[in-house]
Amino acid sequence: MTYEKRSDGRKFDELRPMEAKVGVIPRADGSAMFKTGKTIAYAAVYGPRQLHPSHMRNPETGILRCNYNMMSFSGSGERVRPGPSRRSKEIGLVMEKALLPVLDLSGFPNSVVDVFVELLQTDAGTRCAGITAASLALADAGFMMKDLVAAVSVGKVGDKLVTDVNKEEEDFEEGATDVPIAMLPRTGQITLLQLDGKVSKDELKTLLENAKKATKEIYEVQKQALKEKYGAK
């Protein structure tokens, strides 16, 4: 079966309209908002601060802790049951692993950096929006970072390869494959790659190329947002 036209009228390799803002939460050490289409993610960074429980402390370097949370009113339709779940715990963990390769926390041994990602509104691609916002918030907090991390969810809807999958496409009747990818935009190194569905080897290669192009676009939005905050005279 074929997927002729995207539900929101985008081109197959077109991202949803993006918006980013840095410094949205004044009490946090660093914060950012990232919006792609109807998905809105807020990220707040606290720390480095003393780590409890102390058995988790690492005397060599600071550690990163990510918390992913969907607001109860965020879903499209059903109320999301509040509180931690298996899913949110797992996404918190993969976000941590997606961000850690760029971060240098060796200046803060025995301490922790907490990242809280809150989703106000969700329309698929939440972990990607979360990672993008979190990397902005970490840069805002002034950590040493090799690069910003930009993430996008590419995939296959029906028989078409698409970039930045939305919820309607994710639920496409004849099957959809969702591939969230986080990349360092400059080098194209991958820090997150998940795959839910079916794709062939060649298709996956094309998807990776598409993601590379998309993350470069996202990086420009991130860069602009940071410069907007710090460039203000």
Partner: peptide, 22 residues
Amino acid sequence: ASQVGIVSIEGRLVKLIPLSGR
């Protein structure tokens, strides 16, 4: 660059003056 900062070039040395951070 590995931080948000202002570039400062002193001869051959390139460094950043960070604009945030602990």
